[in-house]
Each structure stands twice: as C-alpha cells, then as structure tokens.
C-alpha cells in the first residue's frame, strides 16, 4: 500500500471558487464553489446535465472555465501559465469507460506513465505495478490484455494505473456507470479501501448508498449550481425539495 504524504499546509487540495462555464448558450456551471481538504472524500451528485461531470473535468483541466478560479495541489488550473503535465502528475483520473490502452498488457498500461513521465526504471515500475495491482486485487492479471478482463476488472486495473503515478488527489467520473451491480460492488470496494487509506478524492456517482457510506461531504448540483451541500447525512434528510426528489428516486 502506498502512503499519502502529508507534507503541506492547511490549504485545500482542491479549491474551486465561483466557477462559471457555458457550452454556447447553455450555462453548465453557474458560480460553483467547493473545497476539498486532504484526506477528504467529496461526492458530486445530481441529475444528468446538472454540471457535475463538467465540474469534475474542470479540476483536471479537461474542460476550461469561463471565469472563477480553480487551484489544485498548488497549481492554478485556471491560470494562463499552468504546467499541465505537472498538474496531471498530481491528479489521477478514472473514467466511466475505463480507457485502458488495448494494445498494452495490464502491466504495460500501468508502467507506461511512471517510466515515460517520471523516468523511473523498468524494474522499479514493474515492482510498483505489482504493488498497485495487489491493492486492487488483480495481481494475477499482470500479463493479460484489457480485452481478457471483465469490466469490473478493467476498471480496477484503470484505478491501479492511476495509483501508480502516486497522485495527491483522485477523480472518479461515474466509474461504475458502465458496470452491472455485481461488478460495481468490486470496484466500490477498491475505492472504499483507498478512502480508508486517506486518499483525497472527488467523485461523481449515481450510487447513493455508496455515497452515503463514503462521503465526507456531498455536493448536490442542480442546473449548474450547488443546490445543497453538507455531510452524507443530507442524503437521508435533505433540506431542499429538489434533493429530496432526487434521492427519493435514487434510493
């Protein structure tokens, strides 16, 4: 298991303040602000099109913002002089569709970035690949190709691939939405273990039961705005009718 280094100050790992973004005439983020502190798990929920995935993608600069500020691990993501590769070494992202590289084995998928980006040796990288795969329970799949794995296994391998870069914060973008309930469970278990380990995480999910169990804070997005936010308890006793309706259909 790799340890999260707790080197720094009290400043949040992810700071999002008053972010606005439009796709053409459509306002997707309308003054969104939230902070994520070290070791915290923030869960973004909301209907499709509420802006939650966009908010998440802005953190890793897969989307640019129109105004406001985003600071992640000391990188001014919204700034003009952002070192994009430095940001992405600190941020791990896992997607809904796994996105493992189909032409590489699981081991090669995992060692690619540490070797090419961080310049660590092949031997070290392979050692690390075994370690992160053990962490997600796939140590026996080292030499298989992605297509030989089930969806849940592919998603766990994708998580391991991100972990190998030793990110300071992990982003999960609806990582179980493409999986059936059984496979969803095995992926969620891995994420729970990461949270227990102290990993800082921001995730978009539709798994309300899971969100209730893991979230330090829940952000409910509605029409590009943060409609309600608070501890996981807001999922069981929502203050706004919109969230009540949303969890009512979800639970």
């Amino acid at each position: 298991m790799h340890k999260i280094t707790r080197t720094d100050t009290a400043s949040p790992v992810v700071g999002v303040s008053n972010v606005h973004k439009s796709f053409g005439a459509l306002k997707v983020l309308d003054g969104v602000s939230f902070d994520v502190n070290r070791g915290e798990v923030l869960v973004l929920i909301g209907r499709s099109g509420s802006g939650k995935s966009t908010a998440l993608r802005c953190i890793d600069r897969f989307e640019t913002i129109d105004s406001g500020e985003i600071v992640v691990c000391g990188h001014r993501v919204s700034g003009p002089k952002l070192d994009l590769r430095a940001l992405r070494q600190d941020v791990g992202i896992v997607f809904q569709s796994y996105n493992l590289f189909p032409h590489l084995t699981i081991e090669e998928n995992i060692t690619l970035a540490p070797c090419s980006v961080k310049g660590i040796s092949k031997v070290q990288a392979k050692e690390q690949a075994r370690r992160v795969l053990a962490q997600v329970g796939l140590e026996d799949k080292l030499h298989q190709y992605p297509e030989q794995l089930s969806g849940g296994q592919q998603q766990r391998a994708a998580i391991a691939r991100s972990l190998a870069m030793q990110p300071k914060v992990m982003l999960f973008d609806e990582v179980t939405s493409a999986l059936d309930p059984e496979l969803t469970g095995e992926v969620l278990k891995v994420i729970e273990a990461l949270a227990a380990d102290g990993m800082t995480m921001v995730m978009v999910t539709h798994e309300m039961g899971f969100a209730r169990g893991i979230a330090n804070r829940v952000v409910f997005m509605h029409r590009g705005k943060i409609h309600e936010t608070g501890p996981a308890a807001i999922l069981t006793s929502p203050a706004t009718p919109e969230l009540a309706q949303f969890v009512g259909t979800g639970l």
Binding site: R88, G92, F101, S116
Partner: peptide, 11 residues
C-alpha cells in the same frame, strides 16, 4: 477517450 486517458496520465 484514449487520448484523454493518456493526457490524464501526464504523458
């Protein structure tokens, strides 16, 4: 998404 995954890994 393959491009994005590679970008996300800081390549």
């Amino acid at each position: 998404p393959q491009w994005e995954a590679a970008e996300g890994l800081a390549l």
